[in-house]
Design a protein around this nucleic acid. Structure first.
Lengths: 408, 408
DNA sequence: CGTTCCCGTTCTCTCGGACAACAAATTATC
DNA sequence: GATAATTTGTTGTCCGAGAGAACGGGAACG
């Protein structure tokens, strides 16, 4: 059974095999290089069972035998390693931001095999951006091994994405409403493969949970500043999506009812105090550089006094979030990655001051260990997801020899 | 596999049987009376497999054969029914509130078989309350069939409960800090059986999700007013607990930084505007009746003008919550159950005004269909939970002939 | 150099669910 | 009202997947 899926169903033996093979692949994906002995203890299955599963992965062309892993600890025969195959399946990850699009070819294991990027023109129509992204995808796929299979495309979107069908309901800073961006990209490519879209903060949280600062931590929040402010939440090891997929809109938490008007129509949303426009205004940054606020902030050697209030507001807002979600970790992504080091003291003080003691004692603030690539790698993760649910089926529908498919 | 549990493990064949038997029991528990044919389609298993599972449940004394269920629809042989056994296993549910404790004997299927309650004296020590609860448990168990087995005790607590061990970290209105209430009750009973504790709002959400207004709805929030304000969140069909178990503390969301001081030390928490003390003050309710605010509110035939601002504040706060969690349903429990009908227009207007359109369009406000019993039935649900994970094991450790055990 | 420890491989066993065939019980149809 | 159609319960068999035992291999340790 999928861990979070449709409950209530029974498990037949076919599902057992699917689940075990998928879980095994998930472990190999997570570790990159792992010994069979570790797999047996991680999965709680018999040696012979693991051997059978590993053999199936090899016959699928996903993994290959490797030398015993790393340093031998203790006596006994060293355990054979399992390594991801060089010509194994891969996905296309797209990180769509307000000013640029990054596209990467990402293999199992989360390695970025090739990347490309292009600016997004201000006020660009969706089809224009889609064509640009399609071009980047072509260039990124260009040097892929012919035998390698493309499993799908994952797209990180700076806006609200409906989870039922991936429609972009609203991307305020791109000024997009109800855009079916997945369909646009597929049409521009002339392909028909699975496309998954999700909110950038949600994907940042997922990536940091799987491969970043939050490995092994089942309750974390990724707070993302990308012009607007949003959050991705992992709780109990799973993404918090909400009914429509719009959960995590912390930017519009009520913060100061006497404050400034927000583009959402309300007054004093948190975003009006810690959003990019508010910060730009505080440090007299020109409006056309708001999208590159992180670079502007990186330019400071000393924290300007004007940012202190922002730091406190950030801490106070985080306190509300921590009270509500009780995470073990809060990852500060987007331009907060540049802001936090400047005003660490104020943020920490603001959080401690306003947070309930029980929630405060177990929480840590940190920076994303994947740097600015968190949403990109999260996009890769959701595109890879079908492989972990049913490797055989996902590889069966995957695309072989993509280059000639794209040329045609 | 347990649906939300430790991921990464493989599934062995023993686990398959456990899971299927538990899932079957979960369905019988949910429906009370269900046909085998429905079970086959719900669980996606073969007829013969379901027959085997049902036979095992019968041999465990949990269920029994019943006549074909309800109205026959269509041709064909009518399917035999599965019904919960009259002398089947049961649990003790405890709803601990600031002014009273309710104890019930609850069978599989969520039926309250017997209930008792007693006032909780103001400023009562934990051991006193524990002794009182133990007495109620004795009286409630008194008429249980001798063959019926007691599976465990579930306790709803008006405060923050650590999920790792059930310790009550803080129950502000009982003035309890770090109380091991489960151990106290067990010691007073002289028993040693599983005890589960959780926050009252969390359990309200669980009960409404399983048996109330939220059946079939996987994303809902139960907002509870019981002197303090808290929320229980169901997301993706699972309880949102957080790292320590303290998630859902929406009462201390920042609401109006220029507002009144909150007992948590901050200023202008949401609770200072929609908490029981704030409402009591607004309608000139004496301080010693704050714990019975729901009854006071029920006394109004016409909504007093003083409550309008409260209704608006409730709506505005709910907007923040809906933006963050994107639920399909918000259930208003505790004294909000009495407040909402009085100021429905203000609440709805406040919510619509401050909520993001995408989140607003799929959300509904409603009252708990289990009335004031939501937390109580939620306590029963967590106590029953082991039965659905592994019926055989849970029944194996369950207590037979409880009366004589309690007498000795 | 032998012992010990751990792991991979192979074979068999066991168990649980699927499947097919048949009987049973009800509805639909002529 | 008799027959056909439909759906389900029951039974026996089959199949597949994981468990377990036995054996051999490879490395560390004494």
């Amino acid at each position: 059974m999928s861990p979070h899926g449709r409950s209530g169903l029974g498990t037949n033996q076919e599902a057992v095999r699917r689940h075990n093979l998928g879980t095994l692949l998930r472990h190999v994906h997570g570790a990159g290089h792992i010994s069979r002995a570790e797999l047996t203890s991680l999965m709680g299955l018999n040696r012979s069972t693991i051997a059978g599963l590993v053999a199936e992965l090899e016959s699928l062309g996903v993994s290959e035998r490797a030398l015993p892993v790393g340093s031998p600890q203790g006596a006994g025969r060293p355990s054979a390693g399992v390594r991801l195959a060089a010509e194994g399946p891969y996905v296309i990850a797209v990180d769509l931001a307000v000013d640029r699009a990054v596209v990467a070819r990402v293999g199992l294991g989360g390695q970025i095999l090739r990347r490309a990027q292009a600016p997004v023109v201000d006020g660009g129509e969706a089809w224009q951006v889609g064509a640009s992204v399609a071009g980047l995808i072509r260039s990124v796929v260009d040097d892929a091994p012919a035998a390698a299979r493309l499993v799908g495309i994952g797209i990180s979107v700076p806006g609200m994405v409906r989870r039922s069908d991936g429609l972009i309901r609203l991307a305020p800073n791109l000024e997009w409403h109800d855009v079916s961006f997945g369909g646009i990209v597929l049409a521009a490519l002339g392909l028909d493969i699975p496309v998954s879209l999700a909110n950038d903060a949600d994907l940042g949280a997922l990536a940091e949970h799987r491969r970043g600062a939050g490995v092994g931590i089942d309750d974390l929040i990724y707070v993302s500043g990308h012009v607007g402010v949003g959050a991705g939440v992992i709780t109990g090891g799973h993404r918090l999506e909400g009914a429509g997929g719009y959960a995590g809109e912390v930017g519009h938490l009520r913060f100061n009812p006497a404050g400034q008007r927000c583009h959402c129509g309300n007054q004093g949303c948190w975003e009006t105090e810690v959003g990019a426009h508010a910060i730009a205004q505080a440090i007299n940054c020109p409006a056309d550089k708001v999208a590159q606020l992180d670079e502007v902030l990186d330019g400071f050697r000393e924290p300007p006094a004007e940012l202190r209030a922002t730091g406190t507001a950030l801490g106070h807002g985080l306190a509300s979030i921590v009270n509500v979600f009780n995470p073990r970790l809060v990852v500060l992504g987007g331009y907060f990655r540049s802001l936090y080091p400047l005003v660490r003291a104020e943020v920490n003080a603001g959080l401690s001051e306003r947070c309930l003691p029980a929630a405060l004692e177990s929480v840590t603030l940190t920076l994303p260990s994947l740097g600015a690539d968190s949403p990109l790698l999260g996009a890769a993760e959701i595109a890879l997801e079908p492989l972990f649910v049913d490797p055989v089926a996902a590889l069966g529908t995957a695309l072989v020899d993509v280059r000639s498919g794209l040329a045609g």
